[in-house]
Computed example of a mutant assay.
Amino acid sequence: MTFSLVGRCARTGQFGAAAATSSLAVGARVHAVAPGIGAVLTQHRTDPRLGPRGIGLLRSGCTAQQTVAALVASTPDHKWRQLAAIDAAGRTAHFHGANVKPESGAAHRADVVAIGNILSSAAVPDAMADAFAAAPGLPLAERLLRGLEAGEAAGGEHGDVRSASLLVFGAHDFALVDLRADGHAAPIPALRALWDEYAPLVEAYVVRVLDPDNARVL
């Protein structure tokens, strides 16, 4: 009961992911992102080990398709897994195991792949990918969050959503954005409120890391 997307900003080289689900702490389990490398999603009967494993494959030079294929081959329980990946060139791939429960689906657009399982509508992945693709000039975090919001507006999943997350990496080995809403009655609107508050501060937090002498008080 999860819907999510991973994407790349061709302008900035940023990579990121956004996800929502009916259980707690989706941001701790479903996505893995690495600067300049790409991103991986692992969901349904989630195996969080597959995210870092996928990042390792992307880092070794595997394409998104090769990465997903290798992840499938590496786990005997692939019938329960739903996977997706985006590589450094923006190529995307996904996998649905034979036991992934309907409604499930995936949608690919330039620099994005959206997937979901136990959805209320087959239109959810397309809505997510279309919303992301519609605003290429906006910050990656905003585009990912708009994708998540569009997925919810298209019906989301069967049952109540309880957690949502937003993760973006830029050129550095620390997250630009890592926001989560857990155990919330409306986690996607809560995530929107967090992002709207955090967005003006992103660059200031980067300055704190790279140039603390000139960091401003927040």
Rank of each mutant, 00 (worst) to 15 (best):
M1N: 11
T2A: 06
S4F: 04
R8G: 07
C9T: 08
R11D: 11
G13T: 12
G13W: 11
G16H: 03
A17E: 05
A17F: 13
A20Y: 06
S22N: 15
L24Y: 14
A25Q: 09
V26F: 07
V26C: 15
V26N: 07
G27L: 00
G27R: 09
G27M: 02
A28K: 14
V30Q: 01
H31A: 15
H31S: 13
V33R: 05
V33Q: 05
A34W: 08
A34T: 00
P35N: 00
G36W: 07
V40C: 02
V40P: 03
Q43D: 05
Q43L: 02
H44W: 14
P48A: 00
R49Q: 14
L50S: 05
G54V: 03
G56N: 14
L58W: 10
L58D: 02
R59L: 10
T63Q: 02
A64N: 02
Q66R: 12
T67W: 13
A69S: 13
A69F: 01
V72Y: 05
T75Q: 09
P76K: 14
H78Y: 00
K79C: 07
W80N: 11
W80Y: 13
Q82E: 12
Q82H: 11
L83I: 10
D87I: 05
A88L: 11
A89I: 09
R91V: 01
A93R: 03
F95P: 10
F95D: 07
H96M: 12
K101R: 11
P102W: 08
E103P: 00
G105A: 07
G105C: 07
R109A: 14
R109Q: 12
R109C: 09
A110I: 12
V112C: 14
V112W: 03
A114S: 10
I115R: 03
N117R: 04
N117I: 06
I118L: 11
I118T: 15
I118R: 00
S121K: 09
A122Y: 10
A123L: 13
V124I: 09
P125I: 04
A127S: 10
A131I: 05
F132D: 01
P136G: 00
G137L: 01
L138C: 08
P139R: 00
E142Y: 02
L145S: 07
L145H: 06
R146G: 09
R146N: 12
G147M: 01
A150Y: 11
A150V: 11
G151P: 00
E152H: 14
G155H: 06
G155D: 04
G156R: 05
D160N: 09
V161E: 09
V161M: 11
R162I: 01
A164L: 01
L166A: 08
L167D: 04
V168E: 05
F169L: 10
F169S: 01
G170R: 06
D173R: 14
L176V: 02
V177D: 08
V177R: 02
R180C: 09
A181H: 02
D182Q: 10
G183N: 14
A186F: 13
P189S: 03
P189L: 05
A190G: 07
R192G: 02
A193L: 10
D196G: 00
Y198S: 06
Y198T: 10
A199K: 15
V202L: 12
V202D: 12
A204Y: 00
V207C: 12
R208S: 11
R208A: 15
R208P: 04
V209E: 15
P212W: 14
P212H: 10
N214P: 09
N214K: 12
R216N: 06
V217R: 12
